[in-house]
């Protein structure tokens, strides 16, 4: 699973990254988490609000920081 956290380095972006790492660890997923900080790359995902969460090339959340349990649900949906 390829997970990307989109964000230019604000507090919310860091919080989302942390929450995602926790969610992945709690679920024991085999996932590769990377952070995308380049604004041109972020724009290529078509979002106007950061942070964003991308799972296997698809934007699943943007503009807010979901809780760890919500991220788990989102990742679970993405697997199925």
């Amino acid at each position: 699973m390829e997970i990307k956290v989109l964000g230019t380095g604000c507090t919310n972006c860091k919080n989302l990254e942390k929450a995602t790492i926790n969610a992945v660890a709690e679920m024991g997923l085999d996932a590769n988490i990377t952070k995308v900080e380049d604004i041109q790359q972020i724009m290529s995902y078509g979002i106007m609000r950061t942070p964003g969460l991308v799972v296997d090339g698809k934007v699943v959340v943007y503009g807010r920081v979901p809780s760890v349990s919500e991220i788990k649900e989102i990742l679970l949906n993405a697997i199925q």
Partner: peptide, 11 residues
């Protein structure tokens, strides 16, 4: 939020 000012401006 002011942290989204750039993507918003670009959009």
């Amino acid at each position: 939020c002011s942290c989204s000012a750039i993507p918003l401006f670009l959009g």
